[in-house]
């Protein structure tokens, strides 16, 4: 099984509640160190322009480059659910993961020790949603096994298409 986040671009309003929920859950000192980021864009080509927001954290990639490059074996991919975990004690602060990650997920709240989204492992194990998913006021963020998320997205898209025909 692969757990994943699903993000509905059409519903995100850029409110950044997910960022703050992450800070609160992970006891991080300030916004610069959050494991989740919200980036806003002004869409050209519409008049007036419209706004889009993207909420991004570690995507727990199927083939995670950070795991491959980590020389210390700090980063591991769990067989159980595909979560990319990390072990702070093994991290030697070489920042290879930072260079390898295409999404800017590895963070360094303590100077030379990597930290990142662990899918709120403790919450998952307590059958709770990750903090960012729980808090999301527009329900733009969801999570679950990737197959189920895909299925749900397809169902929603089908309903939208059916509506067009009436």
């Amino acid at each position: 099984m692969q757990l994943a986040f699903a993000f509905d671009l059409a519903r995100c309003s850029g409110c950044m509640a997910c960022v703050v929920a992450c800070l609160d859950e992970k006891d991080l000192p300030d916004a610069a160190h959050a494991f989740r980021h919200v980036i806003g864009f002004e869409n050209p080509g519409t008049a007036p322009p419209t706004l889009s927001f993207f909420s991004l954290s570690c995507l727990h990639c199927a083939d995670a480059p950070c795991v491959t490059v980590c020389p210390a074996g700090s980063l591991q991919k769990r067989d159980l659910d595909g979560i990319v975990t990390f072990n702070r004690d093994l991290c030697m602060g070489c920042r290879s993961c930072e260079s390898a990650c295409p999404f800017g997920a590895p963070r360094f709240p303590e100077k030379d020790t990597m930290a990142k989204c662990d899918f709120c492992l403790e919450r998952i194990e307590a059958r709770q949603q990750p903090a960012c998913v729980r808090v999301c006021p527009t329900r733009a963020l969801r999570f679950g096994p990737v197959d189920e998320l895909t299925e749900e997205t397809a169902r929603k898209a089908s309903l939208n298409i059916l509506e067009v025909f009436g």
Binding site: C15, M16, A17, V19, V20, A21, L23, D24, R134, V135, C136, P137, R139
Partner: peptide
């Protein structure tokens, strides 16, 4: 749910 303010 909460907003960014309440979450803080």
């Amino acid at each position: 749910t909460l907003c960014a303010k309440g979450a803080a």
